[in-house]
Amino acid sequence: MRFRHAKLLLLVALGLSLLVSLGADRIDAYVLFVLYNIGIYIILAVSLNLINGYTGQFSLGHAGFMAVGGYTAAVITNQFGALNPFASGALFFGALLAGGLLAAVAGLLVGLPTLRLKGDYLAIVTLGFGEIIRVIFQNMDRVGGARGLSVMHGYTNFFWTFGMAAVTVYVVTALVHSTYGRGFIAVRDDEIAAEAMGINTTKYKVTAFVVGAFFAGIAGGLYAHSTQFLTPGGFNFMQSIAIVVMVILGGMGNTPGVILAAILLTLLPEGLRWMAGVEHLPGIAKMHPLGWIGDTRMIIYSLLLIVLMLTRPQGLFIWRRKFRNAPP
């Protein structure tokens, strides 16, 4: 049994993120922003991995859950405003939780009626759901509609981002590494056999959706208070795809791989920006030979994805296990 000192590891991770958070004012604002994005995408990818990777339910609606959490948390903090540091920490935590819970309710609502569907059909329905959420926010005047919603307080810091990422990794790993949790993988491997072996497959699938949606909601809250501006367009279909790509590239049902993929795919466009985005960095423009790349960085990013998918379809970070072939 691996994963033995899980709770201890979680506490260490929380402590470390608190420590870094206290010294965060020495870190460059841009670097910090990228770090927050990494943490947020770790939460999104690891939680989606529970649905897509471990339970084998192809969901394309993660950005929708993220939107529910983001808007909910933003409306709450905008309403109650700035308080003293301690109270604002508590407020932010409450807002994140509320966002997560509302996203979980959305997960339940989508989950129950649609989980009779499998594979492509489920993917299409969850995709439709994500778009519905986006369009609802787009037409909701209370949150600014298509103009977007400014979030007044930049509460997101290193502690909350990476603390929540650690909690997400802990919860997903703890779930899967238990007799109860092997049921998720059983559902993925063979649903008929799982049902015949006494596994309530519907309940497992809904659980995966609710837990996954909850953490997507939390990530949405963190995102809202990091960028401090929400537009419905930020939660479109491409956002969902970006998270799915992280899961596939990391290897379905391989949490460490998915974390690495989330880090890599968040850094990649940033790295390309640094290398080529000379129009944003006029001082470097002259001495930089790759300036011609300019805004084609997203094309390079897409090309890299295609190459990665073609060469390692099983995931970048799936290593060969023992017993790959039949043992003697």
């Binding site: 007799t179 092997r182 049921g183 993988i185 491997d189 063979d190 799982a194 072996m197 006494g198």
Partner: peptide, 16 residues
Amino acid sequence: LFSSLSVFDNVRTVFH
């Protein structure tokens, strides 16, 4: 069988 699970986990899953 649950093909990606180990022999041990195939049996363990049922103990839930």
